[in-house]
């Protein structure tokens, strides 16, 4: 058998690495040669948590080449899209309907302006074979612990792999915390049987837009000595020194009200003012 490739992708804390260890162990139990490779770190800040597993009679490289994965499992919608190029044409896509918006996608610190892709598998029609869209987190929650969502996803993944249930169960028992073995095996079987959701039934990403907040950077020009401290520490680059080395407020709109300039101004010259009645109180 030529090597089979599986790519698992998610966000830090979802159990991607644990799930890949379970899959690798299940393949080992089934007598295959297995290689596994993972990248993890900073997914919640826009980095990647992805694991490649290849198994077969002989496996040379632990990395699944582009467009060759038999199965891509996305523990989160945007991560599934991100790793889509690894999926072989006609390969199976398993996705948890969960959506986790990375802070890096939040382009506007005062409001939620989020370029998060709509959860719509038809948008990638033609790129994949079977698509299994399940509410793994919801199923795991019903079983008693949302942390078992990774086992639900792996249950759905197992439909496309030739590994026996016994091998999977043995692998799960070896890697999950002892007290949660039964729960995870139950979650695994629930994932095997979970029905594919209709995207139309999935609610919109329920982000409440934050109320707009506007701050006024009140600079007392008579007191300011243009020392340059506030432009050097403003995280949003609201303040700058002009060509004449005079302090100017260049972008008050971008101010998030962090007050670093106010507390680090040695001349008592800056005050961040929230307009009366606005969110954050008057001052």
């Amino acid at each position: 058998m030529s090597a089979r490739g599986v790519v698992l992708a998610g966000v830090g804390g979802q159990g991607v690495v644990l799930a890949s260890a379970v899959l690798a162990e299940a393949a080992l139990q089934s007598g295959f040669e297995v290689k596994q490779s993972e990248v993890h770190g900073m997914a919640q800040r826009g980095g990647a948590v992805v694991s490649h597993i290849r198994y077969g009679d002989t496996v040379a490289s632990p990395i699944v080449p582009l467009a060759t994965a038999d199965v891509l499992a996305g523990f989160e919608w945007a991560e599934a899209l991100r790793w889509l190029p690894y999926l072989a044409p006609g390969g199976a896509l398993v996705v948890d309907a969960r959506r986790i918006v990375p802070p890096g996608a939040c382009r506007d610190h005062r409001r939620w302006g989020v370029p998060y892709p709509p959860l719509d598998p038809t948008s990638i029609a033609g790129r994949t074979g079977a698509v299994v869209l399940i509410d793994a987190t919801g199923i795991a929650g019903t079983l008693g612990n949302v942390k078992a969502a990774n086992s639900v996803v792996m249950g759905a993944v197992s439909r496309f792999l030739d590994l026996s249930d016994a091998a999977w169960e043995k692998a799960i028992a070896r890697f999950v915390p002892p007290r949660t073995v039964d729960l995870n095996i139950e979650a695994f079987h629930a994932g095997q049987q979970a029905e594919t959701l209709d995207p139309a039934d999935i609610p919109e990403l329920g982000l409440d837009p934050l109320p707009e907040r506007h701050y006024h950077i009140d600079v007392n020009e008579a007191w300011c000595k243009d020392c340059g401290i506030c432009p050097s520490i403003c995280p949003e680059f609201c303040l700058a020194l002009d060509d004449a080395h005079r302090l100017v407020v260049v972008d008050e709109e971008a101010c998030t009200g962090c007050r670093l300039c106010e507390v680090l101004c040695p001349d008592f010259a800056i005050r961040i003012v929230t307009p009366v009645g606005a969110q954050g109180g008057a001052r």
Partner: peptide
Amino acid sequence: HLREWAMPHVLCAGCAHGIVGRA
């Protein structure tokens, strides 16, 4: 809490003493 009539203070530009005074 400042004697505004006396401001601005005599300290040099960039002297951190004012940060301490404010705290």
